[in-house]
């Protein structure tokens, strides 16, 4: 019930209104709006081409939307200068890419990857940086003796866990995740999900997670938004949406999973 309390007592951490992105005549996403409260996990689901990835990249500042507002902590993010935007990206915000290669420096050791955000915000003690890195590798179940290995020597699952550690080391207030379990084997996915659930719970993270996998949102998300053809067709508490889908498209999504 913390969710309901938050909703009553706190202001939204992220507030999105009328977000629209077009590619020529084609719609990327249109008229999307939602509030994300501190400590809440919002899942965005839909098939590929539904606009969920466009939405996420607009939210995270990788693309500029054509219309709409994005307020973080009450501040209009789209009006930020490049300097303010970058400061946000390396401090308060984190972004976990679907492909860990996009989120890691493949030529830099695991320790350096985790330490980068610390050094970017001013850490200058080698031993302390290393200690933090070791601690975070432990939290994502990577053995401490792999700290000087490069990610290229890691399995896909390890790379993804390393990317998560690299993002969380500075204690970001908002985490974007794009299909974090995509491209992994099923058994590896389960382990990663389990780990993510533990981190989200222990750290009280605020997360926007995009996925086509309903099992992922079932485990992680407090609330759910279902997208189709660039628009939100349904939203609500996760269990509610999955157990009693109202929109025909959501019903189709849910039933197609249950049949498996």
């Amino acid at each position: 019930m913390t969710l309901m309390q938050n909703a009553i007592t706190a202001a939204p951490l992220l507030s999105v209104q009328g977000l629209t992105k077009r590619y020529g005549a084609r719609i990327g996403c249109a008229g999307v709006g939602f509030d994300l409260y501190p400590g809440e996990v919002l899942g965005i689901v839909g098939e590929s081409g539904s606009g969920k990835s466009t939405l996420l990249s607009c939210l995270a500042g990788h693309q500029r939307p054509d219309e709409g507002r994005i307020l973080f902590d009450g501040a209009d993010v789209l009006a930020f200068s490049e300097a303010e935007r970058r400061r946000l990206l390396r401090g308060d915000w984190a972004y976990v890419h679907q492909n860990p290669r996009d989120g890691l420096r493949m030529g830099v050791s695991a320790g350096g990857n985790v330490g980068e955000r610390l050094m970017a915000v001013g850490a200058r003690n080698y031993a302390a940086i290393r200690e933090s890195a070791t601690d975070w590798l432990g939290r994502v179940e990577i053995a401490a003796d792999r700290i000087d290995d490069r990610p290229s020597a890691f399995s896909g699952g390890m790379q993804q866990r390393l990317q998560i550690a690299r993002n969380l080391v500075t204690g970001p207030r908002l985490v974007f995740m794009d299909e974090p379990t995509g491209g992994l084997d099923v058994s590896v996915q389960a382990r990663l999900l389990d780990l993510l659930r533990g981190l989200v719970r222990d750290l009280g993270l605020s997360v926007v997670i995009v996925t086509h996998d309903l099992a992922v949102v079932r485990l992680l998300a407090d609330r759910l938004m279902v997208m189709k053809s660039g628009r939100v067709v349904e939203c609500g508490l996760t269990d509610q949406v999955l157990d009693d889908p109202q929109h025909a498209y959501t019903q189709l999504l849910v039933s197609s999973v249950l049949q498996v």
Binding site: V108, G115, E116, M119, A120
Partner: peptide, 22 residues
């Protein structure tokens, strides 16, 4: 140029970190 403008020098220290680690 952008990195200088924004004083984004973290990457420089990553290089020094890597040197020490290796």
């Amino acid at each position: 140029r952008k990195m200088h403008e924004l004083e984004e020098y973290g990457l420089m220290h990553v290089k020094l970190y890597e040197d020490i680690a290796r």
